[in-house]
Simulated assay, not measured.
Amino acid sequence: METKILESKNMSQTIFIARFITGMSRGGTTWLGKCLNEHPDTAVFGESLFWGRAYIQPQEDGTYSQKQVDNILSRLIQHGCEAFLGKGNGNLKNITPNNLKNLIPTAFGNTEFVPTPVSVFKKICQTICEAESKKITIEKTPHHVNWIDRIIRAMPNSRFVIMIREPYGFMLSYKHQGDRWQEPERTKFKRLYHPLICSLLWRGYIRAATYATHSYAQNTLVVRTEDMKSDSEAVLNEVQKFFLLNPVSKLASKIPPDNSSFLIAERPSLKSEDIFWMNLVASKEISQFGFEKQSSMIEPLRILCSILQLPIWTIRNFIHLNNETSGSVFQYLMRWFR
C-alpha cells in the first residue's frame, strides 16, 4: 500500500484528544467499551496494541518509513480491532473483518501526511470515525496502562480510564478465559497459564495503575470492576464525563452483563496453589487497595508441581510473545516486572 508522504494542513491543525480504555484484562474493559459504543458520538475499537506490544520505533527523525507504515497497517488489518468487529449492540456497526481489509489501505493510500506514531494513530482513529459516522474514537487495549508515559509524551492531552479488579476474581477469569473456545484454543490458553505469572501480572497492573494516577492525575480515572457491577449507570456516567462526552447517555441497559471466561452455571474455583502464589506475590498491594485477602490450605506437593512447571511455561510463553510482539520480548516483560 502506498502512502503519500506529505503533511495535510487540516490534519495538523485539528485538536485531537486521544481516549483510551486500559487497565486489567479480565477487568470489564470489553463490556465498558461495548457500552460506550452505544453512545451516539463514540466508536470504540481495540485491541490495536499500537502503543504497547505492537509499537514500532520510528526512525531517528521521528518518522516512519514506507515499510514501517505497511507493517503497522498489515498488523492492524490482521489482528487489530478484533474486540468490536461484528454485528449487534456494542460492536462497530459498519466495519467488519471483510471490509477492514480494504478500508484501512484505501484511507491511507489517499492521505497526504508525514507518517509519525501520532499521525498514523490519528489517521486510524479518523478512518474509524468516518466509517462509523461518529465524532470520537476510544481505543481499548488493557496493557496500554504500562505505556502511558509513551502516550502522554506523544499526545499530552490523552485521557485514560484504568480498570482494576480484585485479585482472585481477576485470577479466576484469567485462568479460564479460554473455556468458551473450542479446541485447540482452549488447550492453548491452559498451556499459557501459570499461577505465579498470573499473580505477577495482577501486581504489574495494579502498580502501573498506581503510577499512572500519581503521575498523571488529570489524565486518568480509575474504575473498579466491583463498582461497575454494583452501580453500572453511575460508573458509566462518570466515565462519559471524564471522556468529555456530551450528552451523557444512559448506556448500561443497552448491553447485557458480559462474561467472556466461563458460564455462570459452571463457575469454577481457584486451586490452593493459585491462592498461595497470589498471596505470596501481591500481599502488599492487596492490603494497600483494601481488597479482602483470601486464605487457603497450603498443599506443598501442588506448589512444588507448579514450580517444576515454570521452565516449560517460560518456553511456551516466550514463543507466543515473540510471535505477537513487534519489539524486544525481554523489554516488554521487564516493563511488567518493574
Results as ranks from 00 to 15, higher is better:
28 G>C: 06
315 I>A: 12
198 C>R: 05
84 F>R: 01
133 S>D: 13
293 K>V: 00
105 P>I: 01
90 G>S: 10
24 M>G: 01
203 R>P: 01
290 G>E: 00
219 N>F: 08
192 L>F: 07
304 L>D: 06
28 G>P: 07
225 T>G: 05
122 K>P: 02
111 T>A: 15
228 M>G: 02
325 T>C: 15
310 L>V: 14
30 T>E: 02
127 T>D: 02
90 G>D: 13
239 V>S: 06
8 S>R: 05
198 C>Y: 03
157 N>T: 14
218 Q>W: 02
11 M>Q: 12
100 L>M: 15
303 I>L: 10
40 P>E: 12
90 G>W: 11
40 P>S: 14
164 I>G: 00
321 L>S: 08
297 M>Y: 07
147 W>G: 00
106 T>Q: 15
121 F>V: 06
157 N>V: 06
200 L>W: 09
125 C>G: 14
235 V>R: 07
147 W>K: 10
283 S>A: 14
330 F>Y: 12
137 T>H: 02
23 G>Q: 10
211 Y>S: 09
201 L>D: 13
267 R>W: 03
99 N>R: 12
321 L>H: 12
283 S>F: 00
155 M>K: 06
163 M>V: 11
321 L>I: 09
235 V>I: 15
290 G>A: 01
329 V>S: 02
213 T>M: 11
24 M>R: 03
124 I>A: 06
228 M>H: 02
307 I>T: 03
331 Q>R: 13
281 V>N: 00
194 H>Y: 05
